[in-house]
Design a protein around this nucleic acid. Sequence first.
DNA 1: TCGGTTCTCCGTACATAGTTAGGAGTTTCG
DNA 2: CGAAACTCCTAACTATGTACGGAGAACCGA
Lengths: 200, 200
Amino acid sequence: MYGEPKRDRKTERRERTREEILDAAWEIARAEGLAGLTLRDVAQRVGMRAPSLYSYFASKHAIYDAMFAQGWRRLLEGYGEMPLTGHPLADLKSMTRYFLEFSTADPARFQLMNQRTIPGFEPSPESYALAVKCLDLARERLAALGLDDERTLDLLTAINAGLASQQIANDPGGDRWTRLADEAMEMFLAHVKNRRTSDE
Amino acid sequence: MYGEPKRDRKTERRERTREEILDAAWEIARAEGLAGLTLRDVAQRVGMRAPSLYSYFASKHAIYDAMFAQGWRRLLEGYGEMPLTGHPLADLKSMTRYFLEFSTADPARFQLMNQRTIPGFEPSPESYALAVKCLDLARERLAALGLDDERTLDLLTAINAGLASQQIANDPGGDRWTRLADEAMEMFLAHVKNRRTSDE
DNA sequence: TCGGTTCTCCGTACATAGTTAGGAGTTTCG
DNA sequence: CGAAACTCCTAACTATGTACGGAGAACCGA
């Protein structure tokens, strides 16, 4: 029973180094673009040579996978901590605003999380599960607002993805799209309400 | 004055070879992904070695640029040939449907045209002008339907881009997003009409 | 405390990528 | 015909992801 702390210290150090590598990778991806990420650059940033990274990640794709998972974990976390009012319009607006800020704050991250753009890369099932979990949370929130069918969720995610990618492509930093996002949510809510009453 | 036909024959051949190269590039991009495009593969497909391509394009980015321009030219053409009824809802639906089909038919092309994802690549001013021209046509069409402010155009392009990227990422081939696109256009039109009457 | 195992990290090396340089062979034109 | 231009080649340089094998430290059971 006394042997364990030492093993912990070892795996703990290992975990710390993995984090260090991922942090370096994020920095470079932010600066050089997702595809501009280089193992040699990452290695240099953490004081290693490129091949040494293979002690921590099986491949470059494995690094992307870990980043993919981190991204969705952080978004999930952010959604979880977000204060909600219970007013549909206000809550829809804040969720969309949060998503927009999150996405445009790091275009490389958005690209990694939402666009299949790296040839040969596919997130592992475990990482993908995090993305699904995030979608499930959104579904749950929508349901709490009384909007619980699948089409509605698809529509909302499409709008959000579109706003984010347009802002990233055309006007990173501006607030033009933030205001547009508010308008979009008004439109969205009115539509769903309307569909709801005409369905009954 | 008689020297010109021969020069023409030469530049014509050159132009044909450029087309051949671009066709090969599209094929490979469709099959391997945009970033999976390789000069050596392109060269092989047209019966050359990689360095020979430099007689026709200054760099790989120059090939991407020509493809970018071709993509927007084709979309512009498609929009131009599209029959319009004058009914706002019907026309909005067909334009969005066309954009969706066009985009999902070749995800690599969509990525090249709409997402800044290749590190270091930026379209030349001439190529970019084609993209702007395409946006101008959409603006014009919207105006013809009585919807002529900039916000409306932004909102529409965001919706369209979102629908396309979601379909590409989640369900290429299915018609789930086509139907969603119709619904989105109903929502969009109702919203704009509503905003219009409450503005006056 | 010692000997073996495991874990890091290194240097080297290989395949593939975009790209450059320089030179043959062909075509064009005076 | 001879010069110029064009096309295509081979060879080679650099940067990339990755495989291999080894040196040294950390760890663990005896």
